[in-house]
Design a protein around this nucleic acid. Structure first.
Lengths: 211, 211
DNA sequence: CGAATTTTCAGGGTTTCGCCCGATGGTCAG
DNA sequence: CTGACCATCGGGCGAAACCCTGAAAATTCG
């Protein structure tokens, strides 16, 4: 029996996932949550075999939740469930320990296959990137050359681009105002940007936030 | 018995909607389609009482599908089901004949209420806009229809979103700094925005600037 | 382990933003 | 003519953004 935790901020999506999964023998949905923070908490408590995580969630996003879950529960697999087909997103989530990546538009055909693969601890990638390229991607990421922002900087940029002030962000992330300023300044220096407007355009261009 | 047609490009969402709706007495899902063109075709064929349309669909989007369905089937109500809470989207879809607007994040609490209201041919709006403002919105659209910014304000917003500071803009336009600040403030007040990041996202969303 | 990177935080400064208040002309419709 | 918008400008003020320097934990990785 494969025990599954579902994390998605839209109730209707959770209902749909649950309906599809529970129609399958050997699969059991043990919990449903609506954001990344709850996902981590529920995962630790329920110790599921598999967590299905929406990439774009409030409070904690999919990447942060993945990192935390994989850290605390190495035997629990993570399947990222997302709207957008982006190579950067794939590299992002794979690098923090997810082994599954499923587009919402592919859910119909590939959800069960993805879940079965993850249950066997095999990678499953839908979208533009095939599983064959997985190692290449990860190799390239290890060597360097990827996007210049550290995860923390990227997270700060995301929140800024969503319209939060530095003060909001420091509350959200639980760090001091000075730390947020440092990350923001580091990101802008690396990217050669000098104001909020440029930073927001960068974030949109690189799909760190939606428009 | 209220007969319902579901149109959403994500199978999992359709499944979730169907599960929620069919748990209710008096509601029947008579069809599921995955894009706007199929929605029009299926609506004409099935003549449902209500069509639930995803706003963002391939082939035909929600607005086009709504226009066509309302034209061919005046007694069929349309409920727009969308991810984003945007006043412009609301005005858009209401102006082509939809009488329901439901955020996906509100689906859990309000889906049934929305469907029941539409079945009685009453408007139902979730999100930032209350039903009380509905007439005002539609009135304003009938009269003027265009975006709320004056040409000068729009020009200032464009330059800001391109990354210029107020000081840069005043040099560019040959007016005083105070004038630029006034236009910027007026634009933000009209749009209900409170910082640069929100202004830039607005400008991109409304194609005032490119990303 | 040890080096490199990341993350955290601070002081102290200038500039810009965001938001009040007010005002003067110009244009255009009723 | 008389409001209505619109574009132009100003004073003032607190908050936020921006920029520099420095530095100590924590993490990662060879």
């Amino acid at each position: 029996m494969t025990r599954i935790l579902i994390a998605d901020d839209h109730h209707v999506v959770r209902t749909g996932l649950r309906a599809v999964l529970e129609a399958q023998p050997g699969l059991e949905v043990v919990g449903e949550v609506g954001n990344g923070e709850e996902a981590v908490e529920a995962a630790v408590r329920l110790k599921p075999d598999l967590v299905i995580l929406d990439y774009a969630m409030p409070v904690h996003n999919g990447v942060e939740a993945t990192r935390e879950i994989r850290k605390q529960l190495p035997r629990t697999e993570v399947l990222i469930f997302t709207l957008h087909d982006s190579q950067e997103v794939i590299e992002d989530v794979l690098s923090v320990g997810a082994r599954g990546y499923l587009l919402k538009s592919d859910a119909n055909d590939h959800l069960i296959a993805a879940v079965r693969a993850l249950a066997r601890h095999e990678a499953y990638i839908s979208g533009r990137v095939s599983a064959e390229l997985l190692d290449t991607l990860l190799d390239r990421r290890r060597q360097g050359k990827q996007d210049p922002l550290t995860p923390r900087e990227r997270r700060v940029v995301q929140l800024i681009a969503e319209g939060r002030s530095n003060r909001d962000v420091c509350g959200q992330l639980g760090v001091s105002l000075k730390t947020v300023e440092t990350h923001r300044a580091a990101a802008m220096r690396k990217l050669g940007l000098h104001n909020t407007a440029d930073l927001v355009r960068y974030a949109i261009k690189n799909r760190i936030v939606e428009v």
